[in-house]
């Protein structure tokens, strides 16, 4: 059977361009840059802030000391893990609803006509503004936090999925008809793989949104979580603690994004392979 990868990867009869000799950068240079640049920047920050007398911008040494005291691992189980669990729960929910609803809206026109205006209205509301409403409706526990994250993070995936499905190549659709694929087969073997690059782009935006709302949702309710601790530190003028929280958020954001990139690269290996092959021809 012809798969999306096969079709995409099929060489097209285009005039052949003269092949440029690619200058591959050795992997050790990439590693050196990846590790060396942040190290140099940290060293610059450390030196420049060493004699800081500004309360609002303490030295990096102070910030790192507080980072170690707070997060490694005094507050790890009580604050970091609950925040990440809420993030994972909310994002997973958003991914399922976003992809599922995106498919339905893309494929069933009447449903799209019915729901699209409402979706665009709700997604225009800043998610943070909805937190007090969620508190009124479902309280201020983890349910509220997960719901807030899920609602905010659903829309980028939903829109991307709709666009992805609607832009599936007509040839692919024809092929699936000729091969008499069942609805389930069309879904799993044609539409989903074809729309996957766009869906993943939407999921990546959803992840960023989920991360932001994770922090915002901790501003109210029980004062647990990275966001709650960072906010309390800011309001109590514990500025080094606040910077340590900001640093942790930066590190977590970076790591989560990297993990997402790895998963994306693995699942979309066929797609990146096809693009690489196209470039090579």
């Amino acid at each position: 059977m012809t798969t999306t990868a096969d079709i995409t990867a099929t060489p097209v009869a285009t005039p052949r361009r003269p092949r440029r000799r690619s200058r591959r950068i050795p992997s050790w240079v990439k590693w050196a840059l990846a590790v060396g640049t942040p190290t140099l920047l940290l060293a610059a920050w450390w030196t420049a802030s060493a004699d800081s007398s500004n309360t609002f911008f303490p030295s990096l040494e102070q910030i790192l000391t507080r980072f170690q005291q707070l997060w490694l691992f005094d507050h790890f189980l009580t604050d970091v893990v609950p925040s990440l669990a809420n993030l994972a729960g909310g994002f997973a929910l958003a991914a399922i609803v976003g992809v599922g609803l995106g498919f339905v809206l893309a494929l069933i026109r009447p449903v799209r006509w019915l729901l699209e205006p409402i979706i665009h209205f709700v997604r225009s509301i800043p998610p943070v503004a909805l937190v007090p409403i969620f508190i009124t409706m479902i309280g201020f526990g983890n349910d509220m936090r997960i719901t807030s994250i899920a609602l905010a993070a659903t829309f980028p995936t939903l829109i991307a999925t709709m666009d992805g499905i609607r832009s599936v190549d007509g040839t692919l659709k024809d092929v699936s008809v000729v091969y008499r694929l069942t609805r389930a087969e069309k879904f799993t073997q044609v539409y989903l793989p074809a729309a996957a690059p766009q869906i993943f782009a939407g999921l990546q935006v959803s992840l960023q949104v989920a991360f932001i709302v994770m922090i915002a949702s901790e501003m109210l309710g029980a004062a647990t979580g990275i966001g709650a601790l960072t906010l309390t530190a800011q309001q109590s003028f514990m500025i080094a603690d606040m910077w340590a929280g900001v640093l942790l958020l930066g590190v977590l954001g970076f790591v989560i994004n990297k993990i997402f990139d790895l998963v994306k690269a693995r699942i979309l290996a066929w797609y990146f392979g096809a693009k690489e092959a196209q470039r090579a021809t």
Partner: peptide, 11 residues
């Protein structure tokens, strides 16, 4: 980072 560092050194 340079922005932050610059802020750190400023009064």
């Amino acid at each position: 980072s340079l922005g932050l560092a610059a802020c750190g050194g400023s009064k």
